[in-house]
Amino acid sequence: MVLQVLKAHVEAIFAQASREYPDEACGVILGPAGLDRGEVLTPMVNSAHSPTFYEFESKELLALYRSVDDHDQEIVVIYHSHTETSAYPSRTDIAYASEPGAHYVLVSNRAEIAPKTEFRSFRIVDGVVTEENVEILDSF
């Protein structure tokens, strides 16, 4: 498996992660149903406002799913930042992962690796984590 993602989206996710640091930043990339191609970057509010936890705000979550349904889209990527640890799913991430069809992207902007960053993608299905390759493209 491979996740194809736009360079502009990767840059925007890191910019969001920096803005919201030290809190975790989160969001989704949406795409047309069935294509597995994330075209629309949609940052979400982390209602936990926490450096160790994220949760999509409840009303925004409902609006997101309604919009996805109405526009015949799918959630291609669910992303969040780890601000102190590596870009690998934590036990919490695995416990709450509830979209078996989504690519779970973890980014790390922890200080100890700056100015480097990490951007990794995983499938999380029934508690099993499988890393996949990431291809960063200028356009689809």
């Binding site: 989160c26 160790t52 949760e55 999509f56 669910i78 780890h82 934590s90 919490t92 709450y96």
Partner: peptide, 12 residues
């Protein structure tokens, strides 16, 4: 009625 699992997680 709509049921949705929270989208949540974190590094803890």
């Amino acid at each position: 009625i709509t049921i949705l699992p929270a989208v949540a997680g974190g590094q803890m």
